[in-house]
Design a protein around this nucleic acid. Structure first.
Lengths: 175, 175
DNA sequence: CGAACACTTGACGGACTTCAAAAAGCGTGG
DNA sequence: CCACGCTTTTTGAAGTCCGTCAAGTGTTCG
């Protein structure tokens, strides 16, 4: 085990030899494998922009990895233009976002996926927001059909989780 | 439409304003939404290591984006240590890998997912390889149950796509 | 006002999950 | 080498969630 999801993120790792696996778990215990790591792959890059690891990394075979403390990685970039550092941080942010997406389309049931994406789009501040996607496009994003998306939205409405008004939706403040 | 999957990749884009969506399609026409892009997000980073875009990007609302030609992005990193450039390339590779994973767990049926991951692990060179994961772990990676993974492996065996021998598997050379 | 498009709803079928049990691998010690 | 116990894998039966097909009901905009 290289590190656990939630551990203090202090280093980036480069795989030299062997096969490892990144996994991530939801609070309620569902686990999803994110990706296999093979020689040449990098992992733990989120250490550069976050203080906690987003996933656990475990060796599946005996493996050798190169551990680069964040301080050292940053020192290497230090001499560089600030754009270089900014680019790395941005790329790392994209990585974290894609991992989150895998957690959504992987183990979540349809209704949770729909709620997750709508919350992201609408915010949960309680304002009305016009959705920029139709049901078909939402389905495409969530690996569901438009019909399933529609049914989930209706179910969430009936459950009082959200309100709709044509193409506009809103999550009532949960207090 | 910012660019299409397969277009010549010549620039990286930074979202300034608006909402856009990255989508990717398989050769046989299934489309999967990869992620929503919002202000501050970066897209098209694969231009730095590939000559084709991996996904299409489309604006869902009126949007403003900053287009950075690859040549310029590289020039900015030029003054830097080679490690900076290497780091960016590695991060971009991870991004492409995660997109591929979303294509796998999103729209692919169980049997295709199993075949895809086994081919990645075993190579299709025709040698026997010992799997470093058991059925439960394969299921975790593919968002399937261990039983479904097992059934798919059996079906692939019967179809002559692969052979097994305890924990070892092999894809007969397809010639 | 009407046509095109988006969204909802229902009935049905199929793919995958769940639960349960049998079979096969695999290491240990006799 | 074989017997034993453990884990992993396979197989079966039943149930569920989601996809497909097909109407029907908004909504938007010319």
């Amino acid at each position: 085990m290289l590190h656990l999801q939630g551990d203090a993120a202090t280093a980036v790792f480069l795989v030299i030899e062997g096969t490892l696996i990144e996994t991530s778990s939801t609070e309620d215990g569902r686990t999803q494998g994110i990706r296999l790591l093979q020689p040449g792959d990098l992992t733990g890059a989120e250490a550069m922009i976050s203080d906690q690891y987003q996933c656990s990394v475990e060796a599946l075979t005996p493996a050798r990895v190169c551990r680069v403390p964040v301080s050292e990685a940053e020192a290497r970039l230090e001499g560089t233009s600030s754009q270089g550092v900014a680019l790395c941080r941005a790329l790392t942010g994209e990585l974290m976002d894609l991992r989150q997406r895998i957690m959504t389309v992987g183990p979540m049931p349809a209704q949770e996926r729909v709620e997750a994406v709508l919350r992201k789009l609408a915010g949960d501040g309680g304002e009305w927001v016009r959705l920029p996607l139709n049901r078909r496009e939402l389905g495409e994003l969530l690996a569901l059909t438009q019909e399933t998306v529609s049914r989930c939205v209706q179910r969430l409405k009936r459950a009082g989780v959200l309100q709709t008004q044509g193409r506009r939706i809103r999550f009532p403040a949960s207090a």
